[in-house]
Amino acid sequence: MVMIRLHHTQPPHPVRRELITLREAEADPRYGTSPLKRSLEEMLNYGYVLLDKPRGPNSHEIAERVKRFLGAERAGHGGTLDLERGRSRGIRSATDSFGKQY
């Protein structure tokens, strides 16, 4: 049931255009990793979690909880996540930003 629907403009949406090649080049397999082939350790450093925040606890509390989960992961995985140095900001912003619910 829609009672009122108002449209202004579409929000800016990325228009993916074909890349124009300036120089033909091939990736050197010795360096770097394609985003979907990253090791778990790399994933933790170059990844995010799109979290459906439950009603109740605020984003900060959720972030603390996630940090605890992953903190244990860190301990079990050789110090990948550097939570103490404030790099956990991403976890917070991730929980803040996605599936937010008050």
Binding site: N45, Y46, G47, Y48, T80, R87, S88, S93, S97
Partner: peptide, 8 residues
């Protein structure tokens, strides 16, 4: 997480 916090 990690470096990705820079996307915020």
């Amino acid at each position: 997480m990690g470096s990705s916090t820079k996307a915020s």
